[in-house]
Design a protein around this nucleic acid. Structure first.
Lengths: 191, 191
DNA sequence: ATTAACTCGAACACCGATGTACGACAACGG
DNA sequence: CCGTTGTCGTACATCGGTGTTCGAGTTAAT
């Protein structure tokens, strides 16, 4: 019964989602006014399509989650665990650059449970690979798995910040990340 | 000419600084009202001693910087670079736990230049050690030094978050940090 | 004991951001 | 071409945080 939306309305919704994604990736506390301006749209129009700031953020985050999940699902995780990890890191690096601080906005605007559920869901892309690598001796297993996963995220985040501050070039980052993580996960005395 | 402050006033100023440090370490956006309450003092009294929120933050940060600098200066950095790094990491970990997100508050409330100057000052505690270790083959030197410094900070921050979320025990963190960093800095093919 | 310094709560003005209401105008879709 | 849908600017109410003022009450210090 819901009459189909008009073409320009759909286009504006798209613009708003895109602008919001880009803005929130830079500053998770960006105002609705700035998002609207970035989208080339009036603030009132934005509120016509999204109930509140928080619902906008939620929708943006959900779309990002979905695209992230798809991108990670497309990564080949078979074969040598170290190679598989390289692939996963490269894909994750692209996503980290794209979405930046969006995860911070999510943490502030989404109900705590939901956020944690999503976060655990994304972690499950890494967990099996890491467990396999630990079993077959590719990765060190004398540290908690959870810590190693946290470390992965941390390195990606650090690289994002370093690129932003101009400390390293974006083109070098991928190799640097891979290098660093592989080194950190190498079993002691096995090189 | 400035008459000495009264005893209770000095005590209150102390309480406020301490409470502000603790509060800002947890939440860099904490309100002045909450800081005052945590200090067991009226909000007006706080404004009697500090011109504004931003000057309070600045003073708190400056004191933290000073204490941090002293603590790091007391660390023995001679001898084997890897041992020295362990010492420096342990001291830094204590400070990270103590001051937590205070650095975020600093970044938001202080003039950009001043913050960066302070940050570079603290970095200079690490830089000579790292350079020495890279020269004598203790640490890998096929990555930018700046990146390795960023990585150090990142690991400390990650550990802080992990402890906060209950992923790892605070007592285990120090060893885990040292283990991780040493592993990441080990030259490839030399173990 | 007297005074100057200090504390405190309540009330106020101010600011920026969120969210709403209205009315004129534009453009999509049949 | 006409009606529905959507857009836009302005204006307004609200909320939370900052910073100030006032006046009455306490407390340190000589």
């Amino acid at each position: 019964m819901t009459t189909a939306k008009r073409a320009d309305a759909r286009k504006n919704i798209e613009s708003i989602m895109d602008a919001a994604t880009a803005c929130l990736a830079r500053d998770p506390d960006v105002s609705v006014a700035e998002i609207a301006k970035a989208a080339g749209v009036g603030r009132v129009t934005l509120y016509g399509h999204f109930e509140s700031r928080s619902t906008l953020v939620t929708q943006v985050v959900e779309r990002a989650i979905q695209q992230t999940d798809e991108a990670l699902a497309a990564v080949d995780l078979d074969g040598d665990p170290r190679t598989a990890l390289s692939n996963l890191l490269e894909a994750s690096w692209r996503l980290t650059q794209q979405y930046g601080a969006l995860i911070v906005a999510a943490e502030q605007s989404m109900p705590h449970e939901q956020f944690q559920a999503v976060h655990l869901g994304l972690m499950d892309r890494w967990k099996p690979l890491m467990e396999r690598g630990r079993r077959d001796g590719s990765f060190r297993d004398d540290q908690p798995l959870q810590w190693q996963l946290t470390l992965l995220q941390s390195v990606l985040h650090a690289a994002s910040g370093a690129v932003y501050r101009g400390e390293i070039k974006a083109t070098d980052a991928a190799a640097l990340i891979d290098d660093t993580v592989q080194s950190a996960l190498t079993p002691p005395g096995k090189d």
